[in-house]
Structures are given as C-alpha cells and as structure tokens.
Design a protein around this nucleic acid. Structure first.
Length: 119
DNA sequence: GCGATGACAACGC
DNA sequence: CGCGTTGCCATCG
C-alpha cells in the first residue's frame, strides 16, 4: 500500500484507540509496541504507544499494559526499575515464560505466534 | 520555531 | 548478540 501522509494525531485522540487494542490482548500472550500501533490504526508509530503507556502510568486496573513488550521480546524498561519487576512478575503469573530476559514471540505472540510487527 | 527526548523499530556490520 | 544509524512523531523546554 502507498505511504499515506498521515496527519498529526493528538494524545486525546490516539490513546483511547491504543488502549482499546491493548485491552484485547489475551491473557498469556504478548504484543509489540509496533503491533499495537498497527492494530490501532497507527502503523509506524510504536513510540506513540510507548508514550501512551508512560502517560497512563498504570493505565487503570483494566489495562493489561504488561503484555506490551518491544520487538526484541524484551521488557522496555530499565532492569533496575520497579515497573520492570512488576511487569515480569505479572507475565510469569499468567504463564508467559522468559528465556533469560526475553520472551518468544513464536510461542507467546498475539495472533498465533505472529511476527512482532505486522498483523 | 528549534533541538532534545523518549515503555520503539528496521537494518547494517 | 551488541552497536550505531536512520526513520518515526508527539511533547517539552
């Protein structure tokens, strides 16, 4: 598909869509920032998803923010942070196992072991 | 208006 | 696997 010049989007408009996508990531599965962005209708804007979560800071009780990881299968937070530990704990609690500090998209990727990015 | 800053990603080496 | 580079784009100072 041709690259469409996308117009700027504000947080107020994008966040609800992004959160809506994150809410449908099944338990025990994970999705990359890029995948979430793509599914929310913002291809190529993975950073915005990261910003959305950072702003949300916990994002509400119903938001499974811990199921969003980077394209390398790693938690996108400093190893030393509290949030890192919490995210890992939550994932392990729902059956997502780590290989070192990485998670296998092949096994736990949203939508049948999908690729990190595309739908 | 400009440069710096990110819970990012793809690609090259 | 690790690094550096480039592309990305809303925010912030």
């Amino acid at each position: 598909m041709p690259r469409v010049p996308s117009k700027p989007i504000t947080a107020a408009e994008a966040y609800p869509l992004i959160f809506a996508v994150i809410k449908r990531i099944p338990r025990g599965k994970v999705a990359s920032y890029a995948q979430v962005a793509y599914a929310a209708g913002f291809p190529g804007r993975a950073r915005m998803v990261g910003r959305a979560l950072a702003d949300a800071g916990g994002g509400g009780p119903k938001l499974p923010w811990h199921r969003v990881i980077n394209a390398q299968g790693r938690i996108a937070l400093p190893r030393s942070s509290e949030a890192y530990v919490e995210q890992k704990t939550r994932l392990v609690a729902e059956g997502v196992l780590f290989e070192g500090d990485r998670i296998s998209f092949t096994r736990y990727g949203w939508k049948r072991g999908s690729a990190p990015v595309l739908d």
